[in-house]
């Protein structure tokens, strides 16, 4: 059965429709990338799936006892709160030391245990938050724009890391990407959201083409791929999708 199923979700803020009849399902072990223009409701959809925001209409069904790991877009660290990485990884449940070391190693952040959270770089913090999510042995990892603020080699490295984690642990990954066209090449599915699900497909892997190398530069190791949008409808307001985001 699906890990998480959202059926016909609708939500509006102050009369503005943010989600309109959105239905998605996430299957065990698959990598799903969610793309969409700014303000298309991506983060709201994630918050709704996790239970941070209640939808106005629609239903969210979780597999009973689903273990979910969440990596938010940003973790604001208040300087008044002293917190080592080790202490953070023990929240809310104490974890055995070997598990903590393993989770840090799996995310390429070994040896950071005694560092203060506030002293980490953005990329380091991102990996530590991912390590914390791994400690709950998740069946589903949900990440909200995890590569925002990283350069392309950094983004590629993060995607390779996620792919290794998925392969080693078999967990499903549901990830929001800030880029409409460049997605993780290991994505099993890409869903394009613009308040409603516009299109869904697989990434276009062109790793051997010389144009691809020119586009992404060296050092991305095939972790990035293009996503070709196939919109066959236009919106009620008369705008075709092409006007929102032209194809690469």
């Amino acid at each position: 059965m699906s890990l998480l199923t959202a059926t016909d979700l609708s939500l509006s803020f102050g009369g503005q429709a943010v989600l309109e009849h959105v239905s998605i399902a996430i299957e065990p072990g698959e990598i799903v990338t969610l793309v969409g223009p700014n303000g298309s409701g991506k983060s709201t959809l994630v918050k709704t799936l996790i239970g941070l925001t209640a939808p106005d209409a629609g239903r969210i069904t979780r597999k009973p006892g689903l273990r979910l790991g969440y990596v938010p877009q940003k973790l604001p660290i208040d300087a008044t709160l002293p917190m080592t990485v080790a202490r953070f990884l023990n929240l809310p449940k104490r974890q055995p030391k070997p598990q903590i070391a393993q989770a840090l190693a799996d995310t390429g952040s070994q040896g950071l245990e005694q560092k203060q959270l506030s002293a980490l770089s953005g990329g380091q913090l991102q990996r530590v938050v991912l390590a914390r999510a791994l400690l709950s042995e998740p069946e589903l990892l949900i990440l909200d724009e995890p590569t925002q603020g990283l350069d392309q080699p950094g983004e590629a490295a993060f995607y390779q890391l996620l792919e290794r984690i998925r392969d080693a642990r078999g967990c499903a990954v549901f990830m929001v990407s800030h880029d409409l066209h460049v997605v993780m090449s290991a994505s099993d599915r890409v869903i394009c959201l613009n308040h409603h699900v516009c299109c869904e497909g697989t990434p276009h892997v062109v790793r051997d083409a010389p144009e691809y190398r020119a586009l992404f530069g060296p050092g991305t190791g095939g972790a990035l791929a293009l996503y070709q949008h196939e919109h066959d409808h236009s919106h009620d307001d008369g705008h075709a999708h092409e006007q929102h985001h032209d194809h690469a």
């Binding site: 239970g51 979910l68 938010p72 973790l75 917190m83 914390r132 949900i142």
Partner: peptide, 11 residues
């Protein structure tokens, strides 16, 4: 946990 991040707490 709720003090550090309400989002992580809910999750």
């Amino acid at each position: 946990t709720a003090t550090l991040s309400p989002d992580l707490a809910v999750a």
